[in-house]
Amino acid sequence: DFDPDVAQFGVQPETFVWTDAGRQRRYTPDIRLETVGGEVIYRQVKLATRLAADPTLGGRLRAIEAECAARGARHEMWLDTDIRRQPRLSNARRLRATVAVLAAENHHAIHTIITRLPFPSNLGAAAEALGG
């Protein structure tokens, strides 16, 4: 939400299924995003220690990248150590604070505010109406 190059994104958007050596393999990306320029990127978030222990993701990384390419997209691997550095760290903190506001006890107030917005509206207008 805070990256000006991102037009839209979805969490665990789809599952890729393919056959490898007679076995059915599956992979669900963590994030699918589309940039304002129309590029599609599938992102996977991994612990750096886990990736270091298994850099091919059980032999699936090459197939995952091929599945992304077949969809006209690219694959990115983000490590927990990357997310803990700026600017991603401040973005993650802002997202965490935003999610806290979405707690069940705030749903009625949020609904009231959002239904009063003119439509169509954008995310910036909604954020401003909800107090940033």
Score class of each variant (00 low, 15 high):
residue 75 H to F: 14
residue 87 P to R: 11
residue 20 D to F: 05
residue 113 I to T: 15
residue 124 G to I: 11
residue 8 Q to D: 09
residue 83 I to E: 09
residue 52 A to D: 15
residue 108 H to K: 11
residue 111 H to G: 13
residue 131 G to K: 14
residue 56 T to D: 12
residue 123 L to A: 15
residue 56 T to G: 01
residue 83 I to Q: 10
residue 93 R to D: 12
residue 32 R to K: 05
residue 52 A to G: 11
residue 114 I to N: 02
residue 86 Q to T: 12
residue 33 L to F: 01
residue 85 R to D: 02
residue 51 L to A: 03
residue 120 P to I: 06
residue 103 A to G: 11
residue 25 R to E: 07
residue 75 H to C: 11
residue 35 T to M: 03
residue 110 I to R: 13
residue 106 N to V: 04
residue 50 R to W: 04
residue 95 L to G: 12
residue 86 Q to V: 06
residue 42 Y to P: 00
residue 38 G to R: 09
residue 105 E to K: 12
residue 20 D to T: 06
residue 90 S to E: 14
residue 46 K to S: 03
residue 25 R to Q: 07
residue 86 Q to G: 04
residue 20 D to G: 02
residue 100 A to W: 03
residue 100 A to E: 13
residue 114 I to W: 05
residue 24 Q to K: 06
residue 73 A to H: 03
residue 86 Q to I: 03
residue 80 D to P: 07
residue 82 D to N: 14
residue 109 A to I: 05
residue 113 I to R: 15
residue 24 Q to A: 04
residue 2 F to A: 05
residue 50 R to C: 01
residue 32 R to I: 00
residue 45 V to R: 01
residue 89 L to F: 15
residue 45 V to C: 07
residue 56 T to S: 13
residue 11 V to C: 08
residue 115 T to G: 08
residue 1 D to Q: 05
residue 45 V to E: 04
residue 15 T to F: 02
residue 112 T to M: 10
residue 59 G to Y: 00
residue 21 A to C: 08
residue 47 L to Y: 07
residue 128 E to G: 03
residue 25 R to D: 01
residue 42 Y to T: 04
residue 14 E to T: 14
residue 114 I to K: 08
residue 2 F to G: 05
residue 127 A to R: 15
residue 22 G to C: 03
residue 36 V to W: 01
residue 120 P to R: 06
residue 92 A to F: 15
residue 58 G to T: 07
residue 31 I to P: 00
residue 114 I to Q: 07
residue 131 G to N: 15
residue 32 R to C: 00
residue 106 N to C: 08
residue 81 T to K: 09
residue 76 E to A: 00
residue 74 R to E: 13
residue 43 R to W: 01
residue 42 Y to R: 00
residue 50 R to V: 04
residue 20 D to K: 11
residue 120 P to V: 07
residue 63 A to V: 05
residue 9 F to C: 05
residue 9 F to A: 07
residue 23 R to C: 03
residue 74 R to V: 15
residue 128 E to T: 14
residue 85 R to F: 00
residue 88 R to D: 10
residue 65 E to G: 09
residue 9 F to W: 10
residue 45 V to I: 10
residue 130 L to S: 10
residue 46 K to E: 06
residue 116 R to M: 11
residue 38 G to N: 06
residue 38 G to M: 02
residue 63 A to S: 12
residue 132 G to F: 11
residue 3 D to N: 12
residue 72 G to K: 08
residue 74 R to C: 11
residue 65 E to T: 13
residue 93 R to N: 13
residue 41 I to E: 03
residue 21 A to R: 14
residue 29 P to M: 01
residue 112 T to C: 08
residue 83 I to Y: 10
residue 117 L to G: 12
residue 64 I to G: 08
residue 66 A to M: 08
residue 29 P to V: 01
residue 106 N to F: 02
residue 101 V to C: 09
residue 25 R to W: 00
residue 59 G to P: 01
residue 69 A to N: 02
residue 118 P to V: 07
residue 8 Q to S: 12
residue 131 G to D: 14
residue 77 M to G: 00
residue 112 T to Q: 14
residue 67 E to L: 09
residue 63 A to W: 12
